[in-house]
């Protein structure tokens, strides 16, 4: 019985590992494409990272980033890649919820959901503030 659970945990992890690598490759590619395009457009202007002003709102929310990507805006494409990268560990937690559910380990379904809830709070609630 104990052995079965162990193998099952390992299977969940193996699929997760592939999922994460795929996520990193896709987001890395997006960042690279957006980055090259950004450098072609703005490569010879002067950077302004010295003082913090906060990014314009079109680079903060998911829907506006998506809209920028459709219009092939270089910074939006990079931001989309970064967003996808942030999503990879979140996907890992979602996957764990499903895995624990299949194993009928409801205590850990609950624990994973709590973690997911805290991350969701960080992504969605501050926007209103």
């Amino acid at each position: 019985m104990k052995k079965e659970i162990k193998i099952s945990d390992y299977d969940i992890e193996a699929v997760m590992g592939r999922l994460l690598i795929t996520g990193v490759i896709i987001s890395g590619t997006l960042i690279l494409i957006g980055g090259i395009y950004y450098l072609i457009q703005h490569g010879f202007s002067i950077p302004h990272f010295k003082t913090f002003r906060g990014e314009p709102s079109n680079l903060r929310s998911v829907s506006q980033i998506m809209e920028g990507v459709i219009h092939f805006d270089s910074l939006s494409i990079i931001q989309m890649g970064l967003l996808l990268l942030i999503a990879t560990p979140v996907a890992r937690v979602i996957f764990a919820v499903i895995g624990f559910f299949i194993e009928k380990d409801f205590l850990y379904v609950a624990i994973s959901l709590i973690v997911l809830g805290i991350i969701a709070y960080s992504i969605f609630s501050v926007a209103a503030a």
Partner: peptide, 23 residues
């Protein structure tokens, strides 16, 4: 990764994630 994702959400909402620098 999971820990960093939890704070990255807040950083992005607040405009701390600069694409030109992060790239």
């Amino acid at each position: 990764g999971v820990t960093a994702a939890a704070s990255a959400g807040i950083y992005m909402q607040r405009g701390y994630i600069n694409p030109g620098l992060s790239m």
